[in-house]
Design a protein around this nucleic acid. Structure first.
Lengths: 112, 112
DNA sequence: AAACCATGTAAGAATTCCTAACAAGATTGT
DNA sequence: ACAATCTTGTTAGGAATTCTTACATGGTTT
């Protein structure tokens, strides 16, 4: 539940392909990671792996930087957006909790 | 129209990641290509690039092979399925053509 | 003016990927 | 039964890709 198994978030793209997809240099891509704007996973050997979501985020970052926004600012924006998301998440879960309390605590479909 | 821009079909995954995702050996993955069951793209330097759809197809292929089906047979099945798909495609387009002929040939939304 | 930002570039090592070839057990075809 | 084919592993050597670290530089902030 709440799953999507989506391809979008699976980290499977190496940095060279990301370079092709975004038009950014590998230097830029690694630098944005250094500034904590993006968080690739690693293979056993240490190579970076990105998701399609990462690719899209990188393009957004690059656009902002072109507009003169510093990585520092971009990071603040992202943290703020994240926090808002988390708040919504919490609110939804609390409401769900109330509903469960009112209408039943049964978890499984079977009640022998 | 008819588009999906889907991540699923974009060829962005290198063979090592495909190995991780499928559990197959690189030898197997390349062999199935040799037998014309799968068609990766290539980077400028010659490295293979697969899509998520390819990954899923590889798993299906591997399952059939485990069941004792030969690549030869698998290929025939795939061609047959392909042909059926194409037939459906053609039929749909013919029907669409009839509708257009009956109700109007206008292509663009504007008719000045 | 000093510090910081964003990016390029270079060097050298490690990882990943490539093709080609040989081997071998299992299966298929004659 | 015997030969041919199938599937996979393994090896070898080379090429492509990626890694980190360091230095350089023009632009921007402090």
């Amino acid at each position: 539940m709440g799953n999507e198994s989506s391809y979008k978030d699976k980290k499977v793209i190496t940095i060279g392909i990301v370079r092709e997809l975004t038009g950014l240099s590998e230097r830029q891509i690694r630098y944005y990671e250094e500034r904590k704007l993006i968080f690739p996973e690693r293979t056993a050997g240490g190579s970076r792996k990105y998701s399609f979501a990462d690719v899209e985020l990188l393009v957004e970052i690059a656009n902002k930087i072109e507009d003169g926004v510093q990585t520092h600012e971009i990071r603040k924006e992202m943290l703020k957006a994240q926090k808002k998301q988390n708040q919504e998440e919490i609110r939804r879960k609390m409401i769900q909790g109330q509903l469960n309390a009112q209408f039943g605590i049964r978890k499984g479909p079977a009640s022998h």
